[in-house]
Design a protein around this nucleic acid. Sequence first.
DNA 1: CGCGTTCTTGACGTTTTCTTGACGTGGCGG
DNA 2: CCGCCACGTCAAGAAAACGTCAAGAACGCG
Lengths: 232, 232
Amino acid sequence: MNPVDPLSPLVLVVDDEPQMRRFLRASLGAHGYRILEAGTAAEAVMLAMSHNQAILLLDLGLPDADGIAVTRGLREWTQTPIVVISARGREDDKVAALDAGADDYLTKPFGVKELLARMRVALRHATPGTPQHELTFGARFIDLTRRVVTRDGVEIHLTPIEYKLLTLLARHAGKVLTHRQILKEVWGPGAVEQTHYVRVHMAELRKKLERDSARPEWLLTEPAVDYRMREP
Amino acid sequence: MNPVDPLSPLVLVVDDEPQMRRFLRASLGAHGYRILEAGTAAEAVMLAMSHNQAILLLDLGLPDADGIAVTRGLREWTQTPIVVISARGREDDKVAALDAGADDYLTKPFGVKELLARMRVALRHATPGTPQHELTFGARFIDLTRRVVTRDGVEIHLTPIEYKLLTLLARHAGKVLTHRQILKEVWGPGAVEQTHYVRVHMAELRKKLERDSARPEWLLTEPAVDYRMREP
DNA sequence: CGCGTTCTTGACGTTTTCTTGACGTGGCGG
DNA sequence: CCGCCACGTCAAGAAAACGTCAAGAACGCG
């Protein structure tokens, strides 16, 4: 799995020890996960709210709050799987964490392979039907897990290139992308000169997604540079 | 919770040691669970098919079959949570069991409180009130326990590969699956390049399941990506 | 061993998608 | 005002992907 593939699950790692974070970043990154890191409970909650991560790895020994309370707090508003990683191995700790809403509990030290296996379990539990990765633009939805795009509730068929192009722009919404960047990502590094490709396929995308393709609301042109998608 | 309340969760305990079963019967019974017991894999599968238990506690060291294989077999047709309880504590054993479809893995000896907590986690993961032993789409039914497919009430004979292909698509209804994913799941990781297989067998499936195989209503093609089953 | 079923493989026609070139439009500076 | 440049549009043909059929290999079973 490509590390920057938008379909690879986003993991929010919460641990105050930089060493542990480095370790997890390396291990998970090598297995195709995208990582988000937090060192405090406050940071963790903030990131959890602003990002649509697929799973959360939570250390209980945080400097600014009790991990059990953090878990309970998260469960008030999100169902993202939470795997607790803790140095505390007492049975009561496990029971408390699991009853607070955690989905699994691993005691340090643990094996990476077991962690990955338990993460896979947690990820496949994610209730089917609820997309973990969804992007919204106006009345348009991009369901990244199902690879389905809808507009006003109606499904829109996109060819592979159109879909790639759209997700690329959507992931970098608000940012201006140059021809070279787009061509490299969608067509591969060999086609960096074919600026024509982008124009043709962008036109096709606009026809399908914009109300009036002559006056685009979302897929905007940045003259002399290239394209940009409006932020939601 | 009243111990004899018919609404209390039914637990299928699979372990060949009578002592262990007695222990679990007592512990779980005291917490209001109803118990069903099996000492062999064959017994376990039979009971699992005839009863609608809420959760399954499975010992890996059974006399007549490998616990991993039992797990995999059960996962062909049921989504009942499976908590593995094993004396084997090696990381590879855990990974194998979890990847085979188990939802949790406890190493003997374990604390009852932890077991109960993990059972609560597994139970709250279970999709509320829907024991998925049957899939429906249109006038077609897939009975996963009996491995029988019907259309308009008439039974349809499917070859093993067709059945695998159909259940794969049906379980991921709505999601677009790439030919790589399909080939890996149905034919195994070695056949990832043989995109032809899918086309031929998909055609066969459509002939049997669709009214007009030229204009499929359920088994849809996603050009240049692969296939997708319409959601019910 | 012979039978029927299922799977693999190849060939070929059809459909969809991509590329490519021609041409139109509009802003901007000379 | 004109021409340049970058972008937008359209359509034709090439390329890739898909659907179908059928022959032969592999498999399981009596």
